[in-house]
Amino acid sequence: MELQDAYKKKLAAQLKEWGAQIDLLEAKMENVGADIKVKHAREIQELRAKQRAASEKMEELANAGGEAWEQVKGKAETIWDDLKTGIASAHEKLK
């Protein structure tokens, strides 16, 4: 159980960090032209949706145990990787 708790804490901290990074991206959007803002607004919305999905998976992890926990963990890692890639890509585009 300690391993699961540590894993959940790690994911929670990472999710919080990514939320801050998405906030930073939104702040950068305020300083760009209207055409770029429109182009990247959809990307920010998609990142927020992925962030919500990751948060929902965290709740599932909190309630899962045994084999179910391993299955949810695998799905959570996929969502995490997708969110991580999306954030990195958005940062590159807004440099």
Rank of each mutant, 00 (worst) to 15 (best):
N31M: 14
A34T: 11
W69E: 01
T78F: 12
A62P: 04
G65M: 05
L83W: 09
L3Y: 13
I44N: 10
Q51E: 14
K16N: 00
S89E: 15
L11V: 01
K50Y: 04
A20G: 08
K84D: 07
K73G: 02
K8S: 01
K75M: 14
N31L: 05
A54T: 02
H40P: 00
H91M: 07
E43S: 10
Y7R: 02
A6N: 12
E43T: 13
A54N: 15
A53K: 10
K37W: 02
E17I: 06
L15E: 14
K57R: 14
K39N: 10
K37F: 11
A41S: 15
G19E: 10
S89H: 14
L3C: 08
R48I: 05
G86Y: 01
N63K: 03
K16V: 00
L47A: 04
A76F: 04
H40T: 15
L94T: 07
A53Y: 02
W80M: 10
A68L: 07
E92G: 01
V72L: 08
A20R: 02
A34R: 11
A27V: 08
V72H: 03
G65H: 06
K37T: 12
W80Q: 13
K73V: 00
A76C: 11
K8W: 00
L15V: 04
A49Q: 10
L25V: 08
K10P: 01
K84I: 02
L83N: 07
K28D: 00
T78G: 08
K8T: 00
A68T: 08
D35M: 09
Q51K: 14
K28A: 07
N63M: 04
G19Y: 09
A88Q: 11
A12G: 06
L11T: 03
Q14L: 11
M58T: 01
A90V: 06
E56L: 13
D35K: 13
I22D: 14
M29P: 11
E77M: 12
G86T: 03
A34D: 07
E26V: 11
A62M: 09
I44C: 03
E17P: 08
W69L: 00
E30F: 13
E67D: 04
D35W: 10
A6I: 06
E43D: 09
A49M: 11
K9N: 11
A54W: 11
M58F: 09
E26I: 10
E43G: 07
M1I: 01
S89V: 02
K57M: 15
K10Y: 13
K50F: 00
K28W: 09
K39W: 05
E2D: 12
K39M: 14
L61S: 06
K28M: 13
A12L: 13
V38C: 07
K93N: 07
K84S: 13
D35S: 15
A34K: 15
Q51P: 14
D23E: 08
E56H: 13
S89F: 12
G33R: 04
H91Y: 15
M1H: 13
D23Y: 04
I44F: 04
E26N: 10
A68M: 02
I87T: 12
E17S: 14
A88S: 10
A34E: 15
K10T: 09
E56V: 12
T85Y: 04
K57V: 03
